[in-house]
Amino acid sequence: MIAPRRFLPSISSLQALEAVDRLGTATAAAQELSLTHSAVSRQLKALEDQIGVALFRREGKGLALTQSGTAYAQSVRGFLNDLARASLKVRASGERSSLNLGILPAFGTHWLTPRLRAFAEAHPEITVNLSTRLSPFDFSRDKLDAAIHFGARNWQGVEYLELSSERVIPACAPQLVPQGPVSQQELLALPLLHLESRPGAWEEWFTRNGCPGARLRGMLFDQFAQMAEAAALGFGVALLPDFLAEAEFRRGRLVPAFARYAAAEGTYFLVWPRLRDPGRPLQALIRWLQAQG
Rank of each mutant, 00 (worst) to 15 (best):
L88V: 11
S97T: 07
S97I: 00
S97N: 12
L99Q: 02
N100K: 14
L104V: 07
P105R: 14
G108K: 01
T109I: 11
L112Q: 03
T113N: 10
P114I: 06
R115V: 06
E121V: 13
P124A: 05
E125Q: 13
I126K: 02
T127S: 12
N129D: 02
T132G: 00
T132Q: 11
T132P: 10
L134R: 12
S135F: 05
P136C: 06
D138S: 15
A147T: 12
A147D: 07
H149I: 01
R153N: 01
R153M: 13
N154I: 04
Q156W: 03
V158L: 10
Y160W: 04
E162Q: 13
S165K: 05
I169F: 04
P170C: 04
A171T: 11
A173R: 03
A173L: 09
Q175S: 08
Q179L: 12
V182W: 01
S183K: 13
S183M: 05
Q185M: 09
Q185P: 00
Q185T: 11
A189Q: 13
A189I: 01
L195H: 10
S197Y: 03
S197D: 02
R198P: 02
P199M: 08
G200L: 08
T207H: 08
N209Q: 15
C211W: 01
G213M: 08
G213V: 03
A214K: 14
L220F: 03
F221A: 00
F224P: 00
